[in-house]
Design a protein around this nucleic acid. Structure first.
Lengths: 217, 217
DNA sequence: TCAGTATTTAATCAATTGATTAAATAATTT
DNA sequence: AAATTATTTAATCAATTGATTAAATACTGA
């Protein structure tokens, strides 16, 4: 049945559906998404969706892989750059992540939710690339603060960048912010976070040093 | 039909269902939850659920209100305590929040997801209590750092506490951590975060001071 | 143009799911 | 114990939803 057809048209329709699926899935999550919503959003008939992608699940997996790639794609190249300082890396991650999420505000909640629901997606993505554990970034941190597990700092950095987007709906309400003011705050954070991370990395050790928590490097 | 019956039995069954609903809803979210799952989890028949709570939606609203109360209940009393220092408040929030989420690991993702899907829940909770904007906590921050919107610090504090739980599944995998090691890290954070927040509050100003971003206090 | 192929659609199916109902069972009261 | 009321259940309903099918339409190359 399904042929390759004219490449341009083919790609266009297929892409249109995938685009719509990306939008609806990220907004409502897998379970709350109806294939009819996607079809409607794409301006096509429901059957066409299954014609192109066989099933909701298959379509979702395509979208998910793309979103995961987007979400973690910011990190990978920076973390393993041996030619930049730790400070530069922090600046780069904060800046790129915040820009990315301003353009894709629902990405973090979507990825975190669906990774929890279907860890296998995330596992498949990471099983090939062990980019993180042996990364230059973590080594640079470990060198500076051998007393604290380096993931403390990575998680803190990501939390400072991403968490505001996660609590954005709540924040807009309780802080009485408008959309524009929120974006401005996030842009401010591109400058604030590197300063803060620097300060955090400089703090005096407070943890008991009973166990040696240094990574195997 | 539905009578009050024997108070003890009544409460027990009703509570059993609500407990089960809380568990399933927080684990899977509203859309992915089947009323039959809840009934199964509670060890009762499906019809009994509707007999007690009329509908899935009604039951969910009860659970949601409870979870919201739990989630934000940590903050309210601390933020408005005029008798404690800013430093003490930060310590208290970090400690209480981390303890709470260790006991209820799925709470943050559940609350954040469902608040996005149904902002009215959150709105209903907050419309009465304007505890945050005029809080002692924000005033103490604004006094110390009039150059930066105080919500920057609140969001940072919450992010440092909560974000690790949000990316826990990813973290366990990429950092090669076991459950126990993760909990230990979070306990460490109860000490680290206050130190970090202190350092953050001390950083030199880096933002342009064109607009006066001071709150109306 | 027209045969052949690709694309799109309306109609329909079967499974799932939230909700209801009427009947059975258990508890309580008199 | 009998009557009354409360609790629980199996069976069923109607709507939703993912998926399929067969037919119609648009497109392409000879």
């Amino acid at each position: 049945m399904r042929g390759k057809g004219k490449a341009v048209t083919d790609l266009s329709t297929e892409e249109k559906i995938k685009e719509a699926a990306g939008k609806v899935f990220t907004q409502k999550g897998y379970a709350a998404t109806r294939t009819r919503d996607i079809a409607g959003e794409a301006g096509i008939n429901l059957a066409l969706l299954n014609y192109y992608f066989r099933s909701k699940q298959k379509l979702f997996e395509l979208v998910m892989a793309e979103k995961l790639e987007k979400y973690f794609g910011v990190l990978a190249p920076v973390l393993n750059d041996a030619s930049t300082s730790l400070e530069t890396k922090v600046e780069s991650i904060a800046s790129k992540y915040i820009d990315l999420i301003i353009e894709n505000p629902e990405l973090p909640l979507f990825v975190l939710s669906e990774v929890r629901n279907n860890p296998e997606h995330f596992i498949k993505l990471t099983e090939k690339v062990d980019f993180l554990n042996q990364s230059v970034f973590l080594q640079q941190i470990a060198k500076k603060r051998p007393d604290i597990h380096p993931f403390h700092f990575l998680v803190s950095l990501l939390g400072l960048c991403l968490f505001p987007f996660l609590m954005k709906p709540a924040l807009l309400r309780i802080a009485n912010l408008k959309e524009k003011a929120f974006i401005d705050m996030m842009l401010e954070r591109k400058e604030l976070i590197p300063v803060w991370m620097k300060a955090i990395l400089k703090t005096k050790s407070v943890l008991p040093v009973i166990q040696n928590k240094r990574l195997k490097l």
